[in-house]
Design a binder for these strands. Structure first.
Length: 1039
RNA sequence: GGGCCUAUAGCUCAGCUUGGUUAGAGCGCUUCCCUGAUAAGGAAGAGGUCGAUGGUUCAAGUCCAUCUAGGCCCA
């Protein structure tokens, strides 16, 4: 027996009840417990950074992270789901700095690193609480009790272990890194900080001659010089090389005054005007290793000063030859390093040139430009000097111009495993697939070494100790550190500053070794989660059983973040990527297509959104509205739409089933006619429901929630607006076949929808499907086993035709202005396949359109219909190719009726296709439209027609009046608040002969329709009923 | 500067993989119909040079190329 289901439902309130139910019955824990012995389907949770309040985009990712584990669990897998929190990193530090009103590292040092890190830890704990609440509210089932925290000691030690593996392979090294750096604050800036500080400034833009000294080149082109452009003359002091683009063409040009210069061919005209002569031309590759004389001779730079090749060089502006100062440019450093060129930096960390440098010693780097340009002028190296306005990064705190500055930094040599990374990527399934060889593949192809270290405080300390003799020791755990240092530090906090205080005798030379000062990039932390989350290898857990992941999912910004670090660390440490399938989501935008940001005030707060519309609605929107891969706009209107269109339609169908199931005292476990013995519409619904289970399964298997959602929404619509609409009468009568059919359809729908909308489906399961055992849950069920024998493609096609004809009939009704309540004598239908429909299906059309009978249109006299015919290009094109239009024209011009007759009798017909001669065509090569001529209401679409006979006899008219009376009484019943099972009595009087004839003919029918036990031609009744079309006094009373 | 994505009705989006001659849905608007579950449903109307150009083809919203605009990521 069903529970009573209210017709109207407060979805958010219902969800809160379900949350309590799950908690009370430990449903999630039990779903894990009952699947324990099954094969694993591995999911990794990417840890959100706990440095702010959760946003709507977190709900998006979490909806996807939830649906697939739920789905796979139903499909018979065990899917452990460990939550995780990303705790370290600059975002956390900056938030705390802001809270404390700090402006830089000096403040942190003064405050004390231990205290500062305590504040960071506290900040993380605070924000994790908000994520926990949002996660619970949206029904994301993930085990937060056993969550991994990247700041936990065991986690940090796992990270250390992995870094030691990488160090031992020789892939963790210290090197120089060029980064934006504020010379006043004495600290590097992150990219995020950099973006805030661009200011427009005017700098000198100089074109400088670098005389060529290569003997062979000089022999061919005497006195030739490279022409080099730069906006940072102060870096010319450190000039180490000149880079050219290998694929570009270069010219040796003699200009007006006889001077000979080498520039990119594309730029010669813009540099020299028309007045120059090309002495020679060559690709960039031929310039490689050409030696030149550097502009200044102020500092020592050995083994340098020749042309190198670099792909990043452009020929859009400048000269196509780029001056290289590896200490002051990231690209410069990369390209110079490839040639083994030295990195010489004459600028002190405070931004001033070293005192011993001639001319500019002790001068602030920016201030040196003037003197240097003057010297260039003096020694004849300056070709051209202009002022150049451009935007240049400044420190957002103190507005000092930043310097791109080479700093020592620790790198992981990911370039050494580039080929493996690419191979791993080839074996990975990306959704959408374009990421694989697009954004991500491109990133791998252009792989650079991973700059791992940060000169910061709140992070995993880099576990490398160094002695005064530069010997390095990588430490893989606190136990190892205890052993090396000779004191037990196994329960110490592995963070700064405590770990900094631990020294050890160098295993090589016994000198005291101290830890290097850096912490590591927090992206390494999260990328290490496959093993660090379980404390491998310090813990005894066999993480390999959960490696690699079958599924991970994040938004697209993670291509260079977590998606990369996971794959890189997996490949570095285990020579295998950590995931097989990755779903990459688009971003969430506001209703106007803008990014959500606190600054714009357009942030949708997730818990508020879910309390307004329900978590199911928000989840459905994320999963099924629009394409997950694409940036999507989200707003209240869009989510409200989900509620009305999908969730409430589903709910109303459930309420309907519950209502009539209870009225009939129907028992879902009782017997019902075998499907084959049920009416055609039942067989159709069972076919569609089973097809649904198969197709949703296939879509989810391919991670396609959009398609699965569309299938479900369409089915729910069919269920409510075709099956229930067409079958209502049988439910009123408590027909067990109808109840059993709808029950089964709802059971399958509820199971298929459960991973999408876990709340409403749980409610429905409890009310309609539960076997009554305490703790039963839709989320403990298996995926519905489709009965393929019930899937009937022929019936699906036939029903589709029926529904198309009904649509046409409604259109015809509308155009004739004869309302549907008025029965009509008959309809004529012309449609391919109509003749083969069973009487049962045709009856569906008659009932829906209120028509007594139908006939095939072609059974009428030829004079009644017009026949028109056009080519079916799809069929003709395959046969005639280029000649298709000839045949199509011939068909259009031929006598349609004659061809129709020929096709019908012989199965083929002949048309005269001009130069092709006569051609024989078959029925499937033409589209025939038949339409009746006079006195009919007609609608035609795509070759299918229906014509309604508009002749209304007195009998038909009275039958129509009877339906008016029924409708009026029903409305009165409803308005008076009668229960739908209440019985009534009818009183009526009329002086109208027509009304009396109507009652004589239809009284029983009316009584049956409105559940009247008596119909009296007399005054009486409590509730007057008005029937505008009729001179009739009518009243009813509840018995 | 590079890579990727997107462009279809007033708005939000399907359709494009596999080309077929009247390009669909929802929301909104107008008119009408139906209602014994429904906060629903149905019909008609208005609203489309399917971003532009060129190409392939008998045939292009769909395939190819170029371009334009917007977005994201990276320099």
């Amino acid at each position: 027996m069903y529970r009573a289901v209210p017709a109207q439902i407060d979805l958010p309130a219902m969800e809160h009840e379900i949350l309590s139910l799950w908690q009370l019955q430990s449903t999630f824990e039990r779903s894990l417990e009952q699947s324990k012995a099954r094969p694993s389907w591995v999911f990794y949770e990417g840890p959100p950074t706990a440095n702010g309040t959760p946003g709507t985009h977190h709900v998006e990712a979490r909806a996807f992270k939830d649906i697939f584990p739920r789905y796979r669990t139903m499909k018979g897998y065990h899917v452990p789901r460990q939550a995780g929190w990303d705790c370290h990193g600059l975002p956390v530090e900056l938030a705390v700095e802001k809270e404390l009103g700090f402006t830089g590292k000096q403040d942190i040092e003064a405050f004390g690193v231990a205290e500062f890190n305590d504040r960071c830890r506290e900040s993380v704990l605070r924000h994790v609480g908000e994520f926990t609440e949002m996660t619970r509210r949206m029904g994301y089932w993930v085990d937060m009790d056993s969550a991994y925290w990247t700041m936990d000691s065991s986690y940090v030690q796992s990270v250390w272990w992995s870094l030691k593996q990488i160090f031992d392979k020789g892939l963790l090294v210290q090197d120089h890194r060029v980064a934006p750096y504020c010379p006043r604050c004495g600290t590097g800036l992150s990219d995020h900080e950099l973006a805030q500080g661009y200011e427009t400034v005017v700098d000198p833009s100089v074109y400088v001659r670098f005389p060529i000294t290569d003997p062979a080149f000089v022999a061919k082109y005497p006195n030739a010089a490279l022409l080099v452009w730069t906006t940072t003359p102060w870096t010319l002091v450190s000039n180490t090389a000149v880079a050219v683009k290998p694929s570009a063409q270069y010219v040796v040009a003699q200009i007006a005054d006889g001077e000979v210069l080498v520039v990119a061919a594309e730029l010669a005209a813009s540099l020299f005007g028309e007045d120059f002569v090309v002495l020679g031309e060559m690709p960039g590759t031929e310039l490689e290793h050409i030696a030149y004389e550097r502009p200044f001779d102020l500092i020592e730079i050995p083994d340098a000063h020749y042309v190198i090749l670099a792909d990043y060089v452009t020929t859009d502006d400048g000269t196509g030859l780029v001056h290289q100062a590896p200490a002051f440019g990231a690209d410069d450093l990369t390209s110079c390093r490839a040639y083994g060129l030295p990195v010489v930096n004459p600028v002190r960390p405070d931004g001033h040139f070293n005192d011993e440098v001639p001319l500019v010693g002790g001068v602030f780097f920016k201030k040196a430009d003037e003197a240097l340009v003057a010297l260039l002028q003096k020694n004849g190296k300056l070709f051209k000097h202009v002022q150049y306005e451009h935007s240049y990064p400044h420190c957002w705190r103190c507005h000092t111009p930043l310097i791109y500055y080479a700093q020592p930094s620790w790198y992981i040599r990911t370039t050494a495993i580039k080929d493996s990374l690419i191979a791993q990527n080839e074996a990975t399934n990306w959704f959408p697939n374009t990421i694989k060889h697009g954004r991500f593949g491109d990133w791998l192809e252009n792989n650079v070494d991973w700059a791992l270290s940060r000169n910061r405080y709140w992070g995993t300390p880099l576990p490398i100790w160094r002695c005064e003799n530069e010997h390095l020791v990588a430490v893989g755990s606190l136990a190892e550190l205890s052993e090396l240092s000779g004191r037990d530090v196994s329960s110490s906090d592995p963070h700064r500053p405590f770990v900094d205080d631990i020294t050890l005798p160098c295993p090589t030379c016994s000198a005291t070794a101290t830890r290097v000062p850096e912490v590591i990039d927090c992206w390494y932390d999260s990328g290490a989660m496959p093993f660090a989350a379980v404390g491998y290898p310090q813990s005894a857990i066999d993480f390999q059983a959960q490696y690699p992941a079958d599924f991970i999912c994040e938004a697209i910004d993670q291509t260079r973040g977590w998606f990369y670090t996971l794959m890189a660390i997996g490949t570095l440490v285990f020579e295998e990527s950590s995931y097989k399938n990755v779903v990459c989501l688009g971003h969430i935008l506001d209703e106007d297509g803008r990014k959500m940001s606190k600054h714009l005030g357009n942030v949708l707060e997730p818990i508020g959104l879910m309390n307004d519309h329900g978590a199911d609605a928000v989840r459905w929107f994320m999963l099924a509205s629009g394409s997950p891969w694409q940036a999507r706009r989200v707003g209240h209107a869009a989510i409200g739409d989900v509620v009305r269109k999908t969730l409430l339609t589903y709910w109303n169908t459930v309420a309907f089933q519950s209502l009539y199931g209870r009225l009939a005292n129907w028992d879902p476990a009782g017997t019902a006619p075998a499907p084959a013995d049920r009416p055609v519409i039942d067989r159709w619904l069972l076919s569609e429901a089973n097809r649904l289970a198969i197709e949703v399964d296939a879509a989810l298997d391919q991670f396609d929630t959009q398609r699965a959602g569309r299938l479900l929404a369409t089915f729910v619509d069919d269920l409510s607006n075709w099956y229930v609409r067409r079958s209502r009468r049988r439910f009123w009568d408590g027909d067990p076949a109808a109840l059993a059919t709808l029950h089964e359809a709802l059971r399958i729908t509820t199971l298929c929808m459960a991973p999408f909308t876990p709340f409403i489906t749980e409610r429905v399961w409890q009310d309609l499907m539960s076997n009554g055992e305490a703790g039963d849950s839709v989320h403990l069920q298996s995926w519905p086993t489709p009965e393929s024998g019930l899937v009937d493609d022929k019936l699906a096609k036939e029903m589709a035709l029926v529904r198309r004809v009904v649509e046409l009939g409604r259109a015809a009704r509308a155009s004739s202005a004869v309302r549907t309540r008025q029965p009509l004598r008959r309809a004529l239908v012309s449609a391919s396949g109509w003749g083969e429909l069973s009487p049962e299906l045709i009856e569906q059309v008659c009932e829906e359109l209120n028509i007594l009978s139908t006939d095939a249109l072609d059974s009428e006299e030829a004079g009644l219909v017009d026949i028109s015919m056009k080519a079916n290009f799809r069929a003709l094109g395959q046969r005639f190719g280029k000649q298709t239009p000839l045949v199509a024209n011939a068909i259009a011009e031929a006598d349609a009726a004659g061809i129709q007759a020929s096709l019908r009798t012989t199965g083929s017909a002949v048309v005269d296709a001009g130069e092709l001669g006569t051609v024989s065509i078959t029925a499937d090569e033409v589209i025939v439209t038949e339409s009746p001529r006079e006195g009919w209401a007609v609608a035609t679409e795509a070759g299918e027609s229906i014509a309604l006979d508009l002749v209304i006899t007195d009998e038909l008219r009275r039958a129509g009046l009877a339906r008016e009376v029924v409708r009026a009484i029903q409305e009165a019943r409803k308005n008076s608040g009668f229960e739908i099972s209440d019985r009534i009595s009818i009183w009526w009087t009329s002086t109208d002969a027509d009304a009396q004839l109507m009652w004589a003919a239809h009284a029983n029918e009316i009584a049956g329709e409105v559940l009247a036990t008596s119909v009296s031609e007399a005054a009486g009744g409590a509730i007057a009923v008005s029937v505008p079309e009729l001179d009739l006094q009518l009243a009813i009373s509840r018995n």
